[in-house]
């Protein structure tokens, strides 16, 4: 039974047809990688799953996206609530100009949780799950901007984990980071898979091969091929995928 299921999704920025008839089933507790040349709609498709595209003017979608069986574009869906279920980590680390502690507590506070002990407990738990606790436990009151880029990105992951989402969307989460920080994030994705369903956009082929169970190749707004990662990297069925993976274009 899939946790995310999209049916014939089309998406437009104004007149620009950015996504064309995308259907995809994503299983729980898997890592799915989106690959493809830039500008082909990976981020756009990712942002449809937590309705972040709602924040962009003059956009339009047709088709259906079901998450845990629920059509998330149904009129009765409360978008803020949806986003607590479907968390997101952005390309560039974007911690708030607040303390490390307050960054992680933020999602709890805006969702009405006031119990101090619960918040403190969740902050620690989330930082541990994001493999950051040991580095920051003595400076929780310090500004998040004092952390390195890689630490900031793990803080953003902790922040997303704190509200206990079911799905974690990551848009090139390591593209702004050094190799060491990148491998830390990749290790993290591997452990997080046990508790979350992860969808990750990456332009790094090795990364996709290393961390993901399934890989989707996008090209010019279309989903060209979607299969087991092994299959995609060893024996893609479609020539365009083959060409992209072997670096012949993109």
């Amino acid at each position: 039974m899939s946790i995310i299921s999209t049916k014939n999704v089309d998406f437009y920025y104004g007149d620009f047809h950015a996504l064309k008839g995308i259907s995809m089933e994503i299983e729980p507790n898997t890592v799915t990688a989106f690959i493809g040349p830039s500008g082909c709609g990976k981020s756009t498709f990712l942002r449809l799953m937590n309705r972040m595209n709602d924040l962009i003017d003059h956009t339009r979608m047709t088709g259906e996206i079901l998450i845990e069986g629920q059509n998330i574009y149904d009129k009765t869906v409360r978008v803020d609530e949806l986003r607590t279920k479907v968390g997101m980590v952005f390309q560039k680390p974007n911690p708030f100009p607040k303390s490390i502690y307050e960054n992680v507590a933020y999602g709890l506070r805006v969702n009405g949780i006031k119990d101090k002990d619960l918040i403190t407990h969740t902050v620690e738990e989330s930082l541990r799950n994001a493999a950051l606790w040991n580095e920051v436990k003595d400076k929780l009151k310090k500004s998040a901007f004092e952390l390195s880029g890689g630490q900031q990105q793990r803080l953003c992951i902790a922040r997303a984990l704190a509200i206990k989402p079911r799905i974690l969307l990551m848009d090139e989460p390591a593209s702004a980071l050094d190799p060491l920080s990148t491998s830390k994030i990749e290790d993290l994705i591997f452990t997080l898979k046990n508790d979350y369903t992860i969808v990750i956009v990456t332009h790094n082929m090795q990364q996709a091969a290393r961390v993901s169970d399934k890989t989707a190749f996008f090209y010019l707004g279309e989903l060209v091929e979607f299969d087991d990662t092994q299959q995609i990297f060893l024996k893609p069925k479609i020539e365009a995928t083959q060409n992209y993976i072997t670096g012949r274009f993109g």
């Binding site: 972040m52 609530e81 974007n94 933020y106 999602g107 969702n111 922040r159």
Partner: peptide
């Protein structure tokens, strides 16, 4: 966006 993505 970071804030909205957390359900704020």
């Amino acid at each position: 966006n970071g804030s909205r993505a957390l359900g704020a």
